[in-house]
Amino acid sequence: MSLVRVLALKAVTLILVLFGVLMLVVLVLGATGVSDRILTAYVGEQLRAVRQELSQRIRDPVELERALETYRSELITAYGLDRPWYTRLPQMILRVLILDLGSSRTVTSFSGSSKVSDIILERLPNTVALVTTAVAISSAVGIALGARAALKAGSRYDRAVSLFSSVSFALPSWWMGLIYILAFSFYLGIFPFGGLYSTPPPTTPLERAADILWHATLPVLTLVTVILGGWAYISRTIVLNVTREDFVAVARAKGLKENLLMRRYIIRPAAPPIVTNIVFAISGSIGGAILTETVFNFPGMGRLYYEAITSFDENLVIALTYLYTLIYIASRFILEILYVVLDPRVRI
């Protein structure tokens, strides 16, 4: 019962956050007049579509213009362009929520659509796949590295892991990506410079999969390099604290086999705090992913963000800001659930 309550409270906080970010974004857009520009462009676009349609039926140019003018004023009222921006806030929030943000300026989806939602939804799976792969790899490797370092605290291995973690904390993912491109693509020539498919893409499904893997190796490696250190450091600190706990000494005294002790008395109790700390690291992983995609021209949302910024595509920037917040919040919630499952102390 109270388990549900704990999670519900978390959910409410996170939804509040999402809503808060939305409000902030929309307020800024309204106050700076950007939302007016977006809506005006939207109206113009619809008018163009309608003009084509109407020009088939209405032959008289004067009448056509009049009909269009009527339609335009209708649209302006409908979008609230005749009212001050703050009266349109709820409407604007709703539009962002359902990604009804019209068309992008220049960027199009791979299938040619310039609808914001089409463009983004097409790239979403790529980003999710990239981030989850990288997080899965770095968590597995990082926890193993960190735990080993903690058990050998003070050793040369431990110092090496600590140094690596410190460096990776200060390592910008995009620069790491550039270095990998320089090393593996430019000098060694064993991985492609970017993208996700060769041109032309291979035909058989197996070759296609191999091609994608080949292209995704460096982006994944980049992200892993950058996140790995954090996982290792957090795991090391927590495992080190756990090994100093009285219950580990007790377990050792009562003669538990070392691997059992490791599993049950060190890794298992260390899991919940590791998860809590990872919650805070998620933001970094998402940020890292945005920039990594940019560097590798990876067809995901992060690269799209970069393209939207460099081509001043407001609609896309807004939609992506919202969607990244959404992804972040969703992943945090998943981790919260994981934490509750792992730690009996919060379950009562």
Partner: peptide
Amino acid sequence: ILNNIPLLPLLIF
């Protein structure tokens, strides 16, 4: 609430 906000997207925005 602030602690739950992803920083980079907002900075970009």
